[in-house]
């Protein structure tokens, strides 16, 4: 049976998702991904013209500053910080 996606596709999606996968892992995912995508064919005959009943209302508060997390607390779990900021890897 023709497969929807192969190991190259898996590696491409992994790159898009910024998830490191080894070549072995990518090969391992191929059959599982095809199984799941085959199952999603169940949705093919769902009609395209279904009106979603929208009974939701936005709930907003007044745009006024309120007490928030302190800077120290917000940074407490970061591996690297500098001058009160998170420090990330360099953008090439």
């Amino acid at each position: 049976m023709e497969q929807r996606i192969d190991a190259d596709d898996v590696r491409h999606v992994a790159e898009l998702a910024r998830v490191e996968v080894t070549d072995d892992e990518a090969r391992g995912f191929v059959d599982e991904f095809n199984d799941v995508l085959d199952y999603f064919e169940t949705l093919d005959d769902v009609p395209d013209d279904v009106e979603a009943e929208d009974d939701f209302e936005n709930v907003l508060r007044a745009d006024e500053p309120e007490p928030s997390l302190s800077q120290d607390d917000a940074l407490a779990n970061a591996e690297e910080t500098e001058d009160g900021y998170f420090k990330g890897p360099s953008v090439s």
Binding site: A14, L16, A17, R18, E20, V91, S92
Partner: peptide, 27 residues
Amino acid sequence: DDWNDSFADARGRFGDEVKRRVMLGTY
């Protein structure tokens, strides 16, 4: 060396099922 590699490396710690769902969702 750069942020793409660094993020992908940090996220390599996800287990297989999380990788599967994040990747299938992305797809």
